[in-house]
Design a protein around this nucleic acid. Structure first.
Lengths: 194, 194
DNA sequence: CTCTAATTTGAGTATTCGCTCCAAGTTTTT
DNA sequence: AAAAACTTGGAGCGAATACTCAAATTAGAG
């Protein structure tokens, strides 16, 4: 949409404002007026550059999801522990986006199908990474079993993130460490999956 | 508020309508008008019996949470497997409430502190149940370790529920069975926690 | 420099929301 | 029979929402 420098800069200001607001006041506080006020722009300008409010919000979310992809090159040398740590960093570092992510999935307020599918693809990519790392750690693991174990481990991680949203004082990183220690123990013990 | 039969019946109709709507159109579709239309009541009557729309919604949620409490007597003979099964039944049977539950925790739209605290208490009670069952299965487990393991197991269960909301075709019960099998294996193997 | 198109403005619109108030009538309890 | 609770029907408030549009301004390609 934007072709001139002015438009491009304005777009960037709007995205920045949207990102800030999502972090500060959440999804429901991020109104059009709030975005425009913070970006220093009238509603007319906004709609000259964006088709809808949701478009701006989706841009923020998808941008954030894209940037937190661990090991985007997929070098294939990560251990399960590395991936768990990367996940924990995502949650604690980008707690805003994490919350929005949970919120969008569960709420359905923004969740048009496109976004839901995107989240799903993101999740599946992550499952694949985890499964590959698991098989590197234990080559005897079948691809199917690894995928299921990965799904389960990620469920636990998401559940801990959820728990953290429910109670910010919850010791999220402590439980992550616990998972890491368990992974360590299991690997040295061999056999038992997950 | 309601003291006469008429008021009590109307209250029940309103609660029913609210519950149905939450299931059919979600939190954001459950407007005052929708509730009143379905209950066959004018707004004036509604506010004669409820202080606010949120009060009605909170009643539905807290009622639902109360009814799904497994083993309300707390007989103390459940195994971890029983509790996992009970949880799975809660999710698959009361998926509406489960979704609202996740939504309320994560969304903050209804989440006044009272409701958040209630959810937290509910979760903590569940953690306690799980931890007790774990210690019955393995008396050598310290209370602290059991509590942490319970927290982790519940995180995994919540994560699976979340995953199911994200993709309704997800094999939720299959993964639950997987957890049950894992629990079985670990118990026969002794030692390793969770 | 000029002309076109992108951009911005400022003042809207239309709708929905939760909620209030009231007068009049009905039902239930005391 | 009196009092209290309840319902109706409606009008309407104030605030918020996402969004629109004509006109003015500005940027940039030629």
């Amino acid at each position: 949409m934007a072709r001139y420098q002015a438009g491009i800069r304005t777009q960037a200001r709007i995205i920045d404002a949207t990102r800030q607001l999502l972090g500060e006041v959440g999804l429901e506080g991020t109104t059009l007026k709030a975005i425009c006020d913070r970006a220093g722009v009238r509603a007319g300008s906004f709609y000259n550059l964006f088709a809808s409010k949701d478009e701006a919000i989706m841009r923020v979310i998808t941008d954030a999801i894209g940037t937190v992809d661990p090991d985007p090159e997929g070098a294939g040398t990560d251990t399960v522990g590395d991936l768990v740590k990367a996940y924990a960093r995502f949650i604690t570092g980008q707690s805003t986006v994490a919350r929005i992510y949970l919120q969008s999935v569960v709420g359905g307020s923004i969740a048009d199908d496109a976004l839901a599918k995107r989240f799903l693809r993101h999740h599946e990519r992550r499952v694949r990474r985890f499964a590959e790392a698991m098989r590197r750690g234990d080559p005897s693991l079948s691809p199917e079993a690894a995928a299921q174990d990965a799904e389960l481990l990620l469920a636990a991680l998401n559940g801990l993130a959820f728990r953290w949203v429910l109670q910010p004082s919850f010791d999220f990183t402590g439980h992550i460490r616990r998972i890491l220690a368990m992974d360590e123990r299991l690997r040295s013990a061999g056999e038992l999956s997950l």
